[in-house]
Write a protein that binds this DNA or RNA. Sequence first.
DNA 1: AAACAGTTCATACTAAAGTACCAAACCACT
DNA 2: AGTGGTTTGGTACTTTAGTATGAACTGTTT
Lengths: 136, 136
Amino acid sequence: MRKTIIVFGLLILGLLLLFQLSKYAVISGDLDSEVVIAIIAIVFFFVGVYLNKKSLHKQKVASEDINHKKIKDLDISKREYEVLLGISEGLSNKEIGEKLFVSESTIKTHVSNLLSKLNAKRRTQALQIAKDFNII
Amino acid sequence: MRKTIIVFGLLILGLLLLFQLSKYAVISGDLDSEVVIAIIAIVFFFVGVYLNKKSLHKQKVASEDINHKKIKDLDISKREYEVLLGISEGLSNKEIGEKLFVSESTIKTHVSNLLSKLNAKRRTQALQIAKDFNII
DNA sequence: AAACAGTTCATACTAAAGTACCAAACCACT
DNA sequence: AGTGGTTTGGTACTTTAGTATGAACTGTTT
């Protein structure tokens, strides 16, 4: 948030400076007034593009970012979360076990705990719930 | 695509008109040159915002839209697709059967066919593949 | 009318998934 | 040194999921 304010401040200062510089350039005859207008137009065009991209990006990130707080709220451990990611990749318990170098039994324990923490009956339902919570 | 060209053409024409009008306004003394520059800046700022939003929106839509062609290419039938949606909602075969008013056996048949068409070993893998193909 | 694709359903089976319960080992903290 | 949370893993069991096969019933096309 502080970063945004600083960027905005610098932007406004830069633009004011540009205005003043262009005014002096026109008065002193170094530049044609049409050229100045063209530069102003181009600069503001890109300022518009830039600010729009920034704001849209934030929205996008906000809706796609992983909600780490929610993971903690649900009391999901590191290992359980890794298992959840394995499920979302479409892996079987056995395959997840091989990936994490533990036995299938261990994965079953994690999955069972995950399901109760996510209040799900099946792994597919767990995926749907996890997506709703933005934790995967 | 034609629409885009027309919009762009009109936009450029409008901007050129604005340029000429502002020039005459300054010469005839109706408007201060600083006001003209401010107007140009604001207009181009919003042109930048508008064009950026347009292009980003298209990208977003393109990546989120369901690829109906891909569904046909994979030879997935209407009913099979409904079952796929049921799976993505985290339902069991039995629950999907109740939702579509058919027996669990029927759902099993559909699921089995779906898996072979999607080249998946499990329903969770089918979900992952279907997402990659943008068909759910 | 015959062929065809899609849907429906059943049986019988194997393979995964999931539950319940227990137990040991580990790490961090006090 | 003991407590608590996490991770690990086993056994035994029930429930879903998935496969294979066969069969009947729909529309649609030729």
